[in-house]
Amino acid sequence: MLQVQEVCYSYGNHRSWLRPRSEKTPVLKQVSFELERGCCLGLLGTSGAGKSTLGRTVLGLQKPDQGQVLFEGRDLYAAGGRIRKTLRRDIQVVFQDCHSSVNPLMTADRIIGEPLRNYERLSARESKRRTGELLEQVGLSADDGNKRPDQFSGGQLQRINIARAIALRPKLIVLDEPVSSLDRVHQSLILDLLAELKASLGVSYLFITHDIQAAMMLCDRVAVMDRGELVHLTDWPASLWDCEQTAVKNLVEAVLPEHPGGRLALL
């Protein structure tokens, strides 16, 4: 369904007459992978490994310097205007920072209704009914629709972000560290919700995280990134525990034990 082919991207200063030579830092080096329908691919890596940049590239927000992103066989960046908008409909996102992922001045109904408004002509009542359904689907009540973001907790806001992401029944959702800003309890609740939605909607996930345990819980396949390169790809996430690769080992060793004494047992 999704094919990422040899994508390269560098951040850098653009050239100007004051700065004749541009300095560029590569963040993605020849990254390639595929993602099938209904599958969840975990994208693991430390901060600065290029995970989020890859996520933005898949979302169509950042044109890669080289390489292609194909969604159902069509290049995401070659298409213009209207075709791009229809392609985009099937790829949605949940960002890490739940508070700044929502416009503070909008009600939950308007936040969740935004994608619906962009693609479908709905009457005010129909739109209200649909957002109410979506709110219930993510474990909130339809009455919450009139509240504004400052009246929700972090976990509830992340549920609203998820509701917005599933509103258009997309085929792929990019989850960019969706639970990293939440406490442990809400982390597992949100992960449960995501697993449940995946089963009921048949949606694929690109799950970007640095938390190897969260990845184990949700993912069918796991890719590990290190300094802009895809260093490890496996169809069997549990095999990561005894992988010899340095980048993978670092992630495994960073897992906190339930008890300080448990650290040795884990390794």
Binding site: R56, L59, R88, R89, S100, V102, N103, E114, P115, Y119
Partner: peptide, 17 residues
Amino acid sequence: ERPFIAAARVSGSSSWQ
């Protein structure tokens, strides 16, 4: 730079919207 702008773009809003 705020994520809600990126989220709006992903959900199909045009620049003007």
